[in-house]
Design a binder for these strands. Structure first.
Lengths: 251, 251
DNA sequence: CGTTACGTTGAAAGGGTTCAATCCCTGTGG
DNA sequence: CCACAGGGATTGAACCCTTTCAACGTAACG
C-alpha cells in the first residue's frame, strides 16, 4: 500500500524502472520532458479495467506497480489472454493502427500506471528521435513476444508450457531486480491455463507434479522455485520475453 | 515473369498497392519523397533468403510481387513459421528493437521487394509525421495479427484452423483486388501445417475432406473455393488479418 | 456463515500425432 | 526421351496426451 502510494507520486527521474521502461537511454533533460507529459492517477483496484476493447485510443500506459492482463473474447464468448504485464511494461500498443483498442486490460491486483497521451508523445518524439525509436522498440518487442508465445503454443506440451511460463516470470522479476526464486504472483491458475492454451485441470495436475518433484511450489499467490536448473531444463528452450532475452541485446 | 519485371521498375506513384502498402494516406509530394529512398533490386528466386535470423538490421521490406514466409527454428531444430506475406505487406519489423533480425524471410516463389533503408526512413518520418504513424500502424497490425494467430492456436481445432487459413488468404487476395475464389498459392502444405501447429498428415486429411464436401479444392498450387459460405462458417470467427478486418477501420 | 468462484482429483473419451508404407510430382542426368 | 532420385503428399492403424465431465474441497467476501 505504501509502495503504491510512492509510485503514484514519483517522477521518471527517480523511478526505479528507468532501465526497463520508456526512458531507457534518454538524457536527463529528455527524461524531464517526457516526465512532463506523463499523467499519474490513483492506482487501479483489483479487477478494474484500464481500457476495454472498443475504447477509442488515447494513450499508452506504462505499469509502475502491480500486474495487468491483456485479453479479449472469441466470438463464442471464450476469454483469450494475450499476456501478463509487469512493472516497466507498456500496454496499449494494439490500438495504434486502428485508433481503437482491440483488447482489454485489467488490473489483477492493486496496480498503478503512468499514462502517456499518445498525441503528446508523438509530438515529443519528433523533438527527441531517440524517444521515437524507443516506442518502435517497444512495439517490436511486442511482436517478437507474440511470436515466442506462438512457438510455445505450437511446439510445447503442457509440462513445458507451464515450466516455461514460470521460468519466464522468474526471469522478468530477476531483470527488475526483485527476488526471482520466491515471489508473489497475483495471477489465477485459471488465467494461466487460458494463456497457455490449456485447461485449469491440466495446469492443476502439472503444478501438483512440479510440487511433488520439488521443482516449483505455487500455493495461494506465492511461487517458490526450489530447483532452478530443473525448471529451466523442463522449459526446454530458454524463454526470451520482452525484457529478458539473453540472445539479443535490446537497444 | 513480365509482371515481375514491371514491378522491378515501378515507383510508388504508379504502384497498384498504394492503398495497402506503406504510402497509404500520403500526399503526392510525400509519396514522391518516400519513393526516393526506396531501393529496388532484381527479384528474389524461389527459396532465396531476403534476410536471415542474426543478420544486422538495415531495412524494412515491402513486398511488390510474390510470397514470402517468415520463420525461425526452435532450439531443437524444428522450423517455426510465423507468417506468410503477400504483395503490399511489410517484413522485417521484428528487428527494430534489437537491431538484429530475430527471424528469417524466404521467397516461396519469384518475389520482388522494395527496400526501405530504416535510417533514411526514420529521417523522412520526422519531416512527414504521417509516415511515422504509418510505420507505427504497420507494427501495431503485426502485433494484432500475432494475437489473432495465437487465438487460432489456442481455441480452434484442426478443421477450423485450416478453414480460417484458407479464408484469410482469400480475403487478403480480395483486398488486393485479385481473384479470391480461385487463386495460385505457392505455399507447401507442409508449411501450412507448421504455421497452424499441425502435422502434414492432418492437413492432408482435412483438405481431402474439404474437397469431398465440395467446399475447397487445393491441388498443386491452385486453390478453388467452391462454397464461400460454408468455408467462412467452418472458420468460425471471421478472421481479421492485417488488411482485412471488418471490425476495425485501419487508419 | 452462507454463497460463489477457484482449485483439485478421478475416470473416460477423443482429436491429433506418430509411425510406416505408398504414391506422386519435379527436376536431373545419362 | 526416359529412368531415377528426392522431397512432398496421401492413406491407414495404433497410440497418447489433453480434454471433458463430474464430484468434491477450499479460499475469499459480503
Amino acid at each position: 500500500m505504501a509502495e503504491v502510494k510512492t509510485a503514484f507520486n514519483a517522477s521518471c527521474l527517480n523511478c526505479g524502472l528507468q532501465k526497463i521502461c520508456f526512458p531507457t537511454g534518454l538524457s536527463r533533460a529528455e527524461m524531464d520532458s517526457l516526465d512532463h507529459i506523463v499523467q499519474r492517477k490513483p492506482p487501479l483496484q483489483k479487477n478494474q479495467l484500464l481500457f476495454a476493447a472498443g475504447d477509442p485510443f488515447k494513450s499508452l500506459y506504462a505499469i509502475r506497480a502491480g500486474v495487468m492482463k491483456v485479453f479479449s473474447f472469441t466470438d463464442g464468448g471464450e476469454e483469450i489472454i494475450h499476456g501478463f504485464y509487469l512493472p516497466g511494461d507498456v500496454v496499449g500498443v494494439d490500438a495504434l493502427a486502428g485508433k481503437v483498442h482491440m483488447f482489454s486490460a485489467m488490473a489483477l491486483d492493486a496496480t498503478s500506471v503512468c499514462t502517456l497521451p499518445f498525441d503528446e508523445l508523438s509530438d515529443l518524439s519528433r523533438e527527441i528521435p531517440h524517444l521515437n525509436k524507443q516506442v518502435f522498440s517497444i512495439l517490436s518487442k511486442e511482436v517478437v513476444d507474440g511470436r515466442l508465445h506462438s512457438e510455445l503454443l505450437t511446439k510445447k506440451n503442457a509440462d513445458q508450457r507451464i515450466a516455461q511460463f514460470l521460468w519466464s516470470m522468474a526471469e522478468r522479476f530477476k531483470n527488475r531486480g526483485y527476488h526471482y526464486l520466491e515471489f508473489r504472483l497475483s495471477i489465477l491458475h485459471r488465467d494461466v491455463a487460458i494463456y497457455l492454451g490449456l485447461t485449469p485441470e491440466t495446469v492443476s495436475r502439472i503444478l501438483a507434479k512440479l510440487h511433488q518433484d520439488d521443482i516449483v511450489t505455487w500455493k495461494k499467490k506465492e511461487v517458490q522455485i526450489h530447483n532452478e536448473e530443473a525448471l529451466r531444463t523442463l522449459a526446454g528452450t530458454h524463454y526470451c520475453d520482452s525484457n529478458s532475452c539473453s540472445k539479443v541485446v535490446w537497444l
